[in-house]
Simulated assay, not measured.
Amino acid sequence: MSTDVTERPDTRPSDPGLEEGKVAHIIRKDDQMRGYVMGEEVIALCGERFIPTRDPEQYPVCEGCKQALTMLRASGGN
């Protein structure tokens, strides 16, 4: 899995120096190449649809994506 960034107005970053409302979403590795290189829309584990454009290392990870990843791992999914 990979992470990427999109805007979520209901979420605050953990670092006040970060852009307000931005979080890093977790996406499938196959989607990472398609999103960044081809500029195509991808779907995060939380269901958010977006076109990746920013460095996900700069933002806190989306809580919905974290929960979805935990559930996937618990069920033995990839």
Rank of each mutant, 00 (worst) to 15 (best):
M1S: 14
S2N: 14
T3E: 12
T3D: 13
V5E: 09
V5N: 09
V5C: 12
T6R: 10
T6H: 12
T6A: 15
E7I: 14
P9R: 13
P9Q: 13
D10W: 04
D10K: 01
D10L: 06
D10I: 03
T11E: 14
R12S: 11
R12W: 01
R12L: 08
P13W: 03
P13T: 04
D15M: 07
P16F: 01
G17F: 00
L18Q: 15
L18Y: 10
E19R: 15
E19H: 08
E19P: 06
G21R: 04
G21Q: 05
G21Y: 02
K22Y: 11
K22E: 03
K22P: 00
K22T: 09
K22D: 00
V23M: 11
V23T: 13
V23Y: 00
V23I: 12
V23F: 00
A24F: 01
H25G: 12
H25I: 10
H25C: 15
I26K: 10
I26F: 00
I26R: 13
I26A: 12
I26E: 06
I27N: 06
R28C: 12
D30E: 13
Q32S: 14
Q32W: 10
M33E: 14
M33L: 14
M33Q: 12
M33T: 15
M33A: 15
R34A: 08
R34D: 11
R34W: 04
R34N: 07
G35C: 06
G35T: 03
V37D: 06
M38I: 05
G39A: 02
E40N: 08
E40G: 02
E40V: 01
E41H: 05
E41P: 01
E41L: 07
V42C: 03
I43R: 15
I43D: 11
I43Q: 15
A44V: 02
A44F: 00
A44H: 02
A44M: 02
L45F: 11
L45W: 01
C46V: 04
G47N: 06
G47P: 00
G47D: 04
E48S: 10
E48H: 07
R49W: 02
F50N: 06
F50C: 03
P52E: 01
T53M: 10
T53A: 13
T53C: 06
R54I: 03
D55Y: 05
D55T: 05
P56G: 04
P56I: 03
P56R: 08
P56V: 03
P56Y: 05
Q58W: 03
Q58H: 05
Q58K: 13
Q58G: 07
Q58D: 12
Y59R: 10
P60A: 09
P60G: 09
V61Y: 00
V61P: 10
C62S: 09
C62H: 03
E63G: 08
E63N: 08
E63P: 09
G64Y: 04
G64V: 02
C65W: 00
Q67K: 14
A68V: 01
A68I: 00
A68W: 00
L69N: 10
L69T: 09
L69A: 15
M71P: 00
M71W: 02
M71D: 09
L72S: 04
L72F: 05
A74S: 09
S75W: 01
S75I: 07
G76E: 08
G76I: 06
G77L: 12
G77K: 14
N78T: 14
